[in-house]
């Protein structure tokens, strides 16, 4: 545990001592709950259609695959015409692209970012490394199977997959969402203990709350 995260007493500028516990003060700790769909099937269908056509990707390149996402913004591939955008903050994104190998150290940041995204959220695993470790299958610090730690909606194979493959993967994801099967966030909430146990098995210095909203 890092020193700045420990519980301690701080003297404020007005001379009053107060207790600071960063892990509890800065985050909401309540575990995630399963959020039901809208009451009406028609409304939920409309929402799902809008969600599918408005994928906001969290701009967090976790590995080398992030280099394949940049061409998607350029004139040649132009993902914007499919309603795909990049957002800089997890609060506004609903799609997390795990781009390539994921080291244990990055996994920690990924979990924090993932948990801060609002509920219908999707994860795309990009490249072989997220599927079975790829060329890092015997690495000491790279996870070999993403779906042990986060609920994954779509895997895109390849090392690296071309931008065209990415676009095809996003289209597949859209089909899944439109069919109402993109319930990764609820799955995460349902099997929260299982996911947390898996995460804690590989992240040894767990210095964050169990759930950080």
């Amino acid at each position: 545990m890092k020193q700045e995260l420990e519980k301690r007493w701080v003297k404020g500028p007005d001379g009053v001592d107060f207790e600071v516990e960063p892990l509890r003060d800065y985050y909401c700790e309540a575990p995630p709950t399963v959020m039901p769909a809208a009451y009406s099937k028609i409304i939920e269908g409309l929402f799902n259609w809008a969600r599918a056509e408005s994928l906001w990707i969290l701009g967090f390149g976790t590995g080398c695959g992030a280099i394949e996402m940049r061409p998607l913004m350029t004139p040649r591939f132009d993902a914007y015409r499919y309603g795909i955008q990049w957002r800089p903050t997890p609060r506004q994104s609903n799609l997390f692209v795990i781009s390539g190998y994921l080291s244990v150290k990055t996994l920690k940041r990924v979990i924090r970012s993932y948990e801060q995204m609002p509920n219908p959220k999707y994860v795309v695993g990009l490249g072989s490394c997220t599927i079975n470790g790829g060329m890092y299958f015997d690495s000491y610090n790279t996870i070999t199977r993403l779906d042990e730690y986060l609920p994954v909606d779509v895997y895109i194979t390849g090392c690296m997959p071309r931008p065209e493959a990415l676009l095809a993967g996003f289209e597949e994801l859209k089909r899944i969402i439109r069919a109402g099967k993109g319930e990764g966030a609820n799955q995460y909430a349902e099997r929260f203990d299982w996911y947390k146990a898996n995460q804690k098995r590989v992240i040894h210095d767990w210095d964050m709350p169990d759930y950080n909203w």
């Binding site: 809208a38 409309l46 809008a50 906001w56 966030a185």
Partner: peptide, 18 residues
């Protein structure tokens, strides 16, 4: 972007559950 993209983004953002 398609011209109707703003409406989609709007519906999606209202449709977020949490």
């Amino acid at each position: 972007i398609p011209v109707w993209q703003n409406y989609l983004d709007l519906i999606k953002n209202y449709g977020l559950r949490s």
